[in-house]
Design a protein around this nucleic acid. Structure first.
Lengths: 161, 161
DNA sequence: AGAGAACAGGTAATATAATAACGTCTCTAT
DNA sequence: ATAGAGACGTTATTATATTACCTGTTCTCT
């Protein structure tokens, strides 16, 4: 039996968001860093769906709701903070950001990106990272960080066809 | 014994280049597509080292040698052609391009990028792609394409420390 | 409580990467 | 020779990200 990931099937998404925000609060408190209103709002926007969101999309929303138009550094600084604290991930191949599923512990996810619905499913498969580390070690390369981004069709979109 | 990849140790690089160009000629001939002077020159520039090269770096060289300054589409079109025909790869995390080691057959490489010397070592490890496909399949996701880009220290730069 | 440091964020300008739209020239096949 | 496709020039624009500088807030130490 296949366990479809949350990101690729209907669910009460508001719970994803509120849980992510609550976790973020507690993580920041524990780390002694400040989850300011702006940072929290950016995190919330990134979590609005499971689709990676561009910095300028966030910027557009902030500008609209603030009246005064926000400038790029505002968003990038908030995103940098969220990245540093493991609350969001950056998807290099999309120039976009997505909420982290498991912010409790430091990690780098692997991402399955649906070419149809654009949802990004985060994996954390030791088998994948180990295969990478092993292949690297075989040529004397020591690994610091991995980017694994996979494009294809998620379970939901395969059914839909 | 560790077999250090070519990219991360000294070698007669002019042979890399001439071989890559010769292979490109024969592949394009076989495919019935045109490796024009411009495309060939761009391929040569991408091969100038094992370091991924940005489109605008290529542009700068072309501009200088042509006198008239080249415009972005000139370079991007050549790169698109080279990508389509498997002669170069794009490194998403760097917004840069690198020559393909094995253009004879279609594939997507995995890349080890040295944070010190910036060389990109191309791997083609079935174990890695299989681990990815398997993990994806386990959640019902069918894979079209994979991006695997790893940052760390190559063998040469580890010694150098 | 007040001084000073560290941090957060506003603002303007700029850098970097990529694409769109349109025109012209050149091969090549008939 | 000529029509059509392909290659490339050219101008402009869009998308993504960073730099530099300044202001205001919060934290810390005394």
């Amino acid at each position: 039996m296949i366990l479809t990931p949350l990101a690729s099937r209907p669910h009460d998404h508001s719970r994803c968001v509120s849980q992510a925000l609550a976790e973020a609060e507690s993580i920041c408190a524990r780390q002694g860093v400040r989850l300011t209103a702006l940072r929290k709002r950016v995190l919330e926007l990134v979590w609005q769906s499971h689709k990676p969101l561009g910095a300028y999309d966030i910027l557009a929303v902030l500008s609209e709701e603030d009246g005064r138009r926000a400038a790029p550094p505002t968003v990038y600084r908030a995103l940098d903070f969220l990245l540093e604290n493991g609350l969001v991930h950056r998807i290099a191949s999309l120039n976009a950001f997505v909420g982290c599923n498991r912010p409790e512990h430091a990690h780098q996810g692997q991402f399955l990106i649906c070419r149809q619905c654009h949802a990004a499913i985060e994996l954390e498969q030791a088998a994948i990272s180990q295969a990478i580390v092993a292949a690297a070690a075989a040529v004397g390369f020591s690994v610091d960080s991995q980017t694994v981004e996979v494009v294809g069709l998620c379970a939901g979109c395969q059914e839909a066809k």
